[in-house]
């Protein structure tokens, strides 16, 4: 009984350890230009996905009032008024999800005007799921092992 559990645990762990290698097929870094439309209180598209190493240029277009765009973690920002676009460029070296938030107060829901930048592959997400599953398996093993004492 205990042995099976250990074996299952080891298999799962091995699988999990293997996965990032599959995920991490390196892609050639590219130049990417993305147009984001801002209006009260959302961005379209609301999610921007790029790969690690890409050189990303975002053009921000506002269709109603003055909006901004600030990217968490990268700490870059731009802003746009109707007819007056903003733009920013960065190299996507950090992977994971980063919040893009409006940086110009644009109405009551301004603090909630949010989009996501996802830089793949997301090791952070993968690592933490792996940790959570690891904690789960450990806890099961731990409570069943104590039984013997």
């Amino acid at each position: 009984m205990k042995i099976d559990k250990l074996i299952i645990g080891i298999i799962i762990l091995a699988l999990l350890v293997g996965l990032p290698l599959i995920l991490a097929q390196p892609e050639e870094p590219k130049e990417k230009t993305i147009i984001i439309n801002a209006k009260q209180f959302s961005y379209t598209p609301d999610t921007v996905e790029v790969n690690r190493g890409d050189r990303v240029t975002i053009r921000l277009i506002s269709t109603d009032v003055h909006h901004g765009l600030y990217i968490d973690g990268y700490e870059v920002s731009t802003d746009a008024r109707p007819g007056q676009d903003g733009s920013l460029t960065f190299v996507a070296n950090n992977t994971g999800k980063f919040v893009m938030r409006c940086s110009v107060t644009c109405g009551p829901f301004h603090p909630y005007m949010i989009g996501y930048l996802k830089v793949k592959p997301d090791y952070r997400l993968f690592g933490s799921i792996w940790l959570a599953v690891g904690i789960f398996i450990c806890s099961i093993l731990l409570v069943s092992r104590r039984q013997k004492q």
Partner: peptide, 11 residues
């Protein structure tokens, strides 16, 4: 609502 990216939910 506050930190998500879905505009329609905010509306």
């Amino acid at each position: 609502i506050m930190q998500g990216n879905m505009g329609f939910l905010k509306d």
